[in-house]
Design a binder for these strands. Structure first.
Lengths: 170, 170
DNA sequence: CTTGGAATGTCAACAACACTGACATATGCT
DNA sequence: AGCATATGTCAGTGTTGTTGACATTCCAAG
């Protein structure tokens, strides 16, 4: 586990990428890239009374309009108290609408208002611009590999959630 | 920018990956994968009085022993007050040693003690195990693409820092 | 040798975002 | 009627980040 050259002993070509050094580079790449990933929306949000949590909520409500609070909770992986704090401000500010469920009146279905959609667009455009650039520079094959590795990195449950969203989108 | 099918009009093969839907999938993949990325160390740290910030500090001190506080500051991208709070507890608990610089006595050079190295190992082993699994499942080509995209996603400065660390490691 | 600036450390206050635990309300199901 | 579910809320706490202000130490230029 900590010998520093796992795998490379047997085959210098196919297993070289599993050395501890390669793994560490992957770890650091994730760390630095995630900073870039959130940098642009963070800059926009810093000028408002909102933070990264609001961005996430708005993103997934836009992604799955009418989603319930419970569903959003499982996607975001936070407690209801934490999500509620964010949702409350978004509803108060008129960015999110909460409608009582028709079949099950205990549920609240969440939708973005026009203002909410505008904010989502603003944040997503900034984030997408960077990803688009990165994807374009890296090329289609690199992007495919990127996604393959990320999917393999997720917890089982998150992977299911991700796939469900993916299938519903296109 | 928001027409939902950037590029795909002209060429269904090579530019398909730049649609807004593809970009959104990439964004969500990053979000879910990063949760998996930090999940294992977080579980270990939850039982101690430490958090993710301590993990990051310990990681980069281990990576570049003798690094100065200022250097660590630029790597981590936080304020000195924030880093200092973390470093103080690590030093108090005997995990990190701070040595006054020989040539420039204003500088403090940071080293892990034996206990500090033990913690770093414990945390990194947990994180590396997941990355190793993901890399192995995805294969060398996917890993190469993964790294290419992540590097393209970094800010310019972070990319320099990342490269410097990468070159010093192997 | 004095002075300016750089590197570091520290104090205080604050904000964002997460957590736990407890409790209330409305609703659905058996 | 009674239990479970979905949601909301209040109170308290912890980690991590921020600003702003200030002290100390020390190098280096004048």
């Amino acid at each position: 586990m900590t010998d520093g050259r796992a795998g490379s002993i047997h085959n210098g070509e196919t297993l070289l990428f599993l050395t501890d050094e390669q793994l560490r580079q992957g770890i650091e790449a994730m760390f630095f890239a995630y900073r870039g990933f959130t940098a642009d929306p963070d800059r926009i949000l810093a000028d408002m009374a909102y933070g990264r949590a609001h961005h996430r909520a708005v993103h997934f409500i836009n992604r799955a309009p009418g989603t319930t609070v419970n569903n959003l909770l499982s996607i975001l992986g936070v407690t209801k108290q934490s999500l509620n704090r964010v949702l409350r401000t978004l509803i108060e500010d008129g960015l999110v609408e909460s409608r009582v469920g028709e079949s099950d009146k205990r549920e609240r279905h969440l939708f973005l208002t026009e203002d909410g959609k505008a904010l989502e667009q603003k944040l997503s455009d900034a984030q997408r611009a960077r990803i688009r650039m990165a994807f374009r520079d890296a090329g289609p094959e690199a992007v495919a590999g990127f996604r393959t590795v990320l999917e393999a990195m997720m917890d089982r449950e998150m992977h299911h959630t991700y796939q469900r969203l993916k299938d519903s989108g296109s």
